[in-house]
Computed example of a mutant assay.
Amino acid sequence: MNYEGKVYRPWIEADSFLIQTTLGCSHNKCTFCDMFRDKKFRIRDLDDIFRDIDEARTCFRRLRSIFLIDGNVLALKTDFLLKVLNKITETFPEMEKISLYAGLNDLRRKSIDELKQLKAAGLSKVYTGLESGDPVVLECIGKGLTPEQAKQGMAHAKSAGIEVLISIIFGIGGKERSREHIVATTELLNILQPEELAPMALTIQPGTILAQQVASGEFVQATPMQILEEEKYMLENLEDFKMMYWGDHGNNIETLRGMLPAYRDFFLQKIEYAITNNPVTKKEVLLTSPW
């Protein structure tokens, strides 16, 4: 395979084969993210993508799941992405799932008809970073997204029948805006009602704008206790819609994975136990590993 630069995929896609379709991220302005700082966004040549797909066929007798990288692949024109999807399903008739990264704005900018075409061509699920439902936090982290735009993007996905996994970040509001961040995020999630949710604790990535803000004192990190309280608040206040909860990111204080609302009480018991007993709550900063 011809991979360029650092390669990322969600931990949930550990068993999926990766096909690099774009290079970098078309937004690439989030203050907390360094995933694609080493790349300028561009689209790979279609022939190169096809060659990788053909090569994968020679390597695997059966391949059931493919994840398209790099960043927001859904920013591609629909006709181009349809050619990629059709090539995958023609080459791998046994394919069960094709997923990719997308921004909620990418979903919003596609028409429902376009998204339905992509769904029919094999697109199963998109992974998208909401990070926060608080418009102040979204502005501060350079997300380029408003809550209203998030609602529009999710509505398009639901109308097209494309599943959406949303990621949020505990602690992204910092010490001073922890409460506002989690209240607004929970309220927005209750409107969006994604099929899957992947919450993770904030990691300060070296070399990012956020890392500079931490060093200067402009951004004061939320404490581990605040991070646990954010997760507790969210779990207590999410409405009873069916959703897979992937709370098992390596940087989270507690490892929680299961369906909501069925596992809500069990998750809350674990969070409440951690609040009372985990020594990390006595620390000022949660130490996490860069991606």
Rank of each mutant, 00 (worst) to 15 (best):
L138Y: 03
A102I: 07
Q212L: 11
I275Q: 12
L286Q: 01
N190P: 02
K39W: 04
V73S: 00
T146I: 07
S111R: 09
R37N: 14
E180G: 12
T186C: 08
A56C: 04
L210K: 02
F80V: 11
W291C: 06
L107N: 07
S124N: 12
G103K: 04
K158R: 14
D70S: 14
A262M: 11
E13F: 00
A121Q: 06
V137T: 14
I168E: 06
M259R: 10
Q213D: 13
D134I: 10
D248C: 14
S216T: 15
I98D: 07
L18G: 03
V285I: 15
Y233F: 15
M259N: 08
L85P: 01
G250A: 14
M225N: 05
A121N: 01
A150D: 10
K97A: 12
A75V: 14
I49K: 08
N252C: 01
I49F: 04
C25N: 00
L145M: 04
D15T: 14
L82E: 09
Y245E: 05
K97T: 13
D47I: 13
V136Q: 12
L235Y: 08
L118V: 08
G71A: 15
S65K: 13
I172K: 07
I204D: 08
I98N: 02
L235Q: 08
M234F: 13
R264W: 09
A274Q: 06
L63E: 00
N277W: 08
I168S: 00
S167P: 00
A157Q: 00
G5T: 00
L123W: 03
F92A: 01
Q20G: 06
K270Q: 14
H181A: 06
I271E: 00
L287N: 14
